[in-house]
Design a protein around this nucleic acid. Sequence first.
DNA 1: TTTTGAGTTGTTCGA
DNA 2: GTCGAACAACTCAAA
Length: 467
Amino acid sequence: MTAIWWIRRDLRLIDNPALHAALAGGGRVVPLFVLDPALLGSDWVAPQRVAFLVAGLRLLAADLQKRGSGLLVRLGKPELVVPQVVSEVRATAVYAQADISPYARQRDKRVAEAVQLNLVPGLTVHPPDWVLKADSTPYTVFTPFSKAWKSHALPNANDLLPVPDRIATPDLPPSDAMPETEALKAPFPPGETEAQHRLAVFVEGSDAPIFRYGVDRNQLDLDGTSQLSPYLRLGMISARQAVVAALQARDRATTAAAQKGVETWLNELIWREFYAAILYHFPHVRRGNFRPQYDTIPWRNDGTEFAAWCAGKTGYPVVDAAMRQLLATGWMHNRARMIVASFLVKDLLIDWRWGEKWFMQHLVDGDPAANNGGWQWTAGTGTDAAPYFRIFNPMTQGAKFDPDGAYIRRWLPELANVPDKYIHEPYKMPLPAQKKAGCIIGKDYPAPIVDHGQARQRTMDAYKVSS
DNA sequence: TTTTGAGTTGTTCGA
DNA sequence: GTCGAACAACTCAAA
């Protein structure tokens, strides 16, 4: 008996339910990855994300070879490729980790019409239809969702599935060539080994970063976050293992602050599950506002201003530094994501979907559910959204979370010599100071493309009209 | 069915 | 300089 392990967002051997199901169901297993032209050619694709995926597949193939197996890679529509491979290797069933995006679910439905497709949970700790209200409808507010989520049986270390010693695999038919990719720019070496290392660094020891996460995660000039998002995105580490690590760290926390740090990180993992469930139950959020009453917001959608935002040339240093970090590395600090999102939506009055798409086109960790949830939160159109008057002030946010301007200077070299006093508002520099810093406003660095105070009022008025 | 309490991440203004 | 209120209702979840 031969089964196919169809790999999608589970590029790992540790704690992989789909792999274990395939082993149990077949005896012999053919690991298969399908390069889907609909995804590779979509206008939501990010070259850095593809590069991270392809490099990750090479590492996974090497890990599989060490266990007597290998990886079959094929290019083509899954509804054609999967049945083709089933017949080539004479498999009796296909096992895969269930996915939640509308595209993935339609794709799997088409594949299941042709072959016996067994979908196994694993993308999230609790499957999206487990955490429901008493009346069996989904939650749309985070806090009650998280309470219900925590009240379900939580995993412990014994629940994590071990790596199979050996994976019996028949001789594999030839693979297609991997696509050419650009070099990885982000400081995220792909692969399961790296993901395991990062989790360990984040949670192990009495002085682990997770215990300071509550405070440090907001600091733009610090690596206070887990830096695990690209690995969770492609399942190079399981969400279940991350949650187990958080629960263990919580038991080891010795101070209230440390406990809070752990709880904050656990909540971030639950936010990931929440937005996965939202996209699963309300697929229309991928097209537009969760709340249709916001469909009438009079977006300005100025193309020139959008281009300035994309390029990191708005004249607001913290916004521009973050957008340059995204262009340079394919990643952006979480606090920075909120700041630039607030600026796009509430200072420029540009439709959040423009920003959502730009993020998906550049983020190495871009996830359709979390990205959509985050943007709708900022825009105030989402499930548990920020009130419309919650508008980030780029100067205040910069002063608070990048007090010395280290983050700004790192990504905006033209501001390197601007004195601390003006680093968050360089346009206030008198001309002599501009000359001394080698930074003439309007020439070396742009003047602000909008006045924040006026823009803020404009948005308050626009949202009032449409609510 | 009705009622009640609560709701990620902020900013500004005026006392 | 500090601090509390206002920003505005509305929807959700649960009793």
